[in-house]
Nucleic acid binder design. Structure first.
Length: 470
RNA sequence: CGGGGAGUAGCGCAGCGGUAGCGCACCUGCUUUGGGAGCAGGAGGUCGCGGGUUCAAAUCCCGUCUCCCCGACCA
């Protein structure tokens, strides 16, 4: 029986569709203060999976986790000129505490370079203390004028890494390593989101950095989303916070630094990259629940069979759960699991069980087929692997179809209406970049012609990837 | 901050001087259960807030607050 669609069709109104998915899949609610967000259990489970996968990769690069305070003296922000200029419009400032006006206001961290580096200056004395590699999982606050759940909220959760190195080359190599081995690897292999890696132009660079590297993804509507950034800070903060060390010869030098982060914005990116008219589609490598065993009706021992099947899947290492809410209609439950993007459903009912089989439903291609009970384990593993590959391939094809090579700024603006434009940076330049921005389009990153990272910022022979962005 | 809308039940909306309504969701019961179940019964609202006009205001007037959408910054 035909019903009204569960969601606003994606092609009809993309932003509305996004809001519908967030609400119907029970991902998040708006908080009571404008721009804040309540992350509901299902989305938080997704975030925890992201954290687990990223944390492992971060630690593999040698960084250790630590925690620094939420409150930062306002004076710290002012020590680095570009940094304070970049962040002051979006700071939340606390002027009162304990019922009294504070002598010096404190800011709620918008990022932690300043506090962390004030401690680095105490901790670093010798080249033997380097490299110093620290990461923290935290919330940060940037007062936003136009919030959107997950994509741009006043408070968000993220991971921020901060490192100090003896040489510029070492810092640069580490920033690139984080980009490639942590961020790009995670996004491609786990999120199944293809990303372009490149350098930001001076205009798009992080406030206080000498270089910003980025992972840029294309969403379902052709717009770009910055999924993560890794910065080379040079010696800017080292000078501002007096972080010096004695090298092998005994002479003093300032350290060379990096910082890098990814946030809950990735949840929004995941929705907009893989979602369809039935809701979210989660890649199995990420999904908190990879398989849900749906009991159709409890008659004739089907309940026991479904529970046993679920246990068997869990025992084989699959993140499986059982849906035995037979008091709720089968159709409603099907819709719910589709909204939530669970990659595979196994439907178990007395009718088919009598014949020794169950029904396997694959979310990524919306197909269902009978599978013999004895083959479920193998078929599920195959389906999960297929889903992971399929989502990445589909997103990659989508991006390629919507990327065009152009030769002028005007053509780039036109092409950016539907996706990405690639254009020689030499044709754009800083004046062309300004013209793009005036028309709502920006240079997402600079790449070498083969897609590799340019050796330096704004290398004249590099290619600019241009698009509209979130 | 500029332009445009909207505040009425948990959500989405109608009502626009005369008893507070509809759909979905919710609760109870029965029948159901293979793609958002059906029937019956039920609960839920100082109509954003403050003032004014009127015999009478959700409705008209003034003020105020909030939210949403579109433009300048950002993970």
């Amino acid at each position: 029986m035909a019903r009204a669609p569960v969601l606003t069709p994606r092609g009809e109104d993309f932003p509305r569709w996004y809001q519908d998915v967030v609400a119907k899949a029970e991902l998040a609610d708006n908080g009571p203060v404008r721009g804040t967000m309540v992350i509901r259990p299902y989305a938080y489970a997704i975030w925890e999976r992201m954290q687990a996968e990223l944390d492992r990769r971060i630690k593999a690069t040698g960084a250790e986790n630590a925690y620094f305070p939420l409150f930062i003296p306002e004076s710290y922000l002012r020590r680095e000129a570009e940094h304070v200029e970049g962040f002051s419009p979006e700071l939340a400032v606390v002027t009162h505490g304990g019922g009294k006006e504070l002598e010096e206001p404190v800011v709620v961290r918008p990022t932690s370079e300043t506090v962390i580096n004030s401690y680095f200056s105490k901790w670093v004395q010798s080249h033997r203390d380097l490299p110093l590699l620290v990461n923290q999982w935290a919330n940060v606050v940037r007062w936003e004028l136009r919030p959107r759940l997950f994509l741009r909220t006043t408070e968000f959760l993220w991971q921020e890494g901060h490192t100090a190195h003896a040489t510029q080359a070492d810092a640069a190599a580490y920033a690139e390593r984080i980009l490639a081995e942590v961020y790009e690897d995670f996004m491609v292999e786990v999120l199944a989101v293809p990303v372009l890696t490149g350098r930001k132009t001076a205009r798009e660079r992080f406030a206080g950095a000498i270089n910003t590297l980025t992972c840029e993804a294309m969403m379902g509507d052709g717009k770009a989303l910055q999924m993560g950034t890794s910065h080379e800070l040079g010696q800017n903060f080292a000078r501002a916070f007096d972080i010096t060390f004695s090298d092998e010869t005994g002479s003093q030098d300032h350290v060379w630094q990096t910082s890098w982060g990814v946030s809950t914005r990735m949840v929004g990116g995941l929705i907009m990259c893989h979602g369809d008219d039935a809701g979210l589609r989660l890649p199995p490598a990420l999904a908190p629940t990879q398989v849900v065993v749906v009991l159709v009706r409890a008659d004739e021992g089907a309940g026991d069979a479904a529970a046993a099947l679920c246990h068997q899947l869990v025992a084989s290492g699959v993140r499986a759960s059982l849906d035995d809410r037979v008091g709720t209609s089968f159709g409603r439950r099907s819709v719910e699991w589709e909204l939530k993007g669970v990659p595979v459903r196994v439907e178990v009912g007395p009718r088919e069980l009598a014949a020794g089989w169950v029904t396997l439903v694959e979310r990524h291609v919306a197909t269902k087929r009978p599978v013999a009970l004895a083959d479920v384990g193998g078929e599920v593993a195959t389906a999960l692997a297929d889903a992971q590959r399929h989502l990445l391939a589909e997103a990659t094809r989508h991006r390629e179809e919507r990327t065009v090579e152009v030769g002028s700024v005007d053509e780039a603006v036109e092409a950016a209406a539907g996706g990405f434009a690639r254009i020689p940076w030499a044709v754009v330049g800083t004046t062309g970049e300004g013209a793009l921005v005036d028309q709502g389009v920006s240079v997402r990153c600079l790449q070498r012609a083969d897609g590799g990272l340019p050796g330096a910022s704004e290398e004249p022979e590099s290619v600019a990837v241009v698009g509209r962005s979130y």
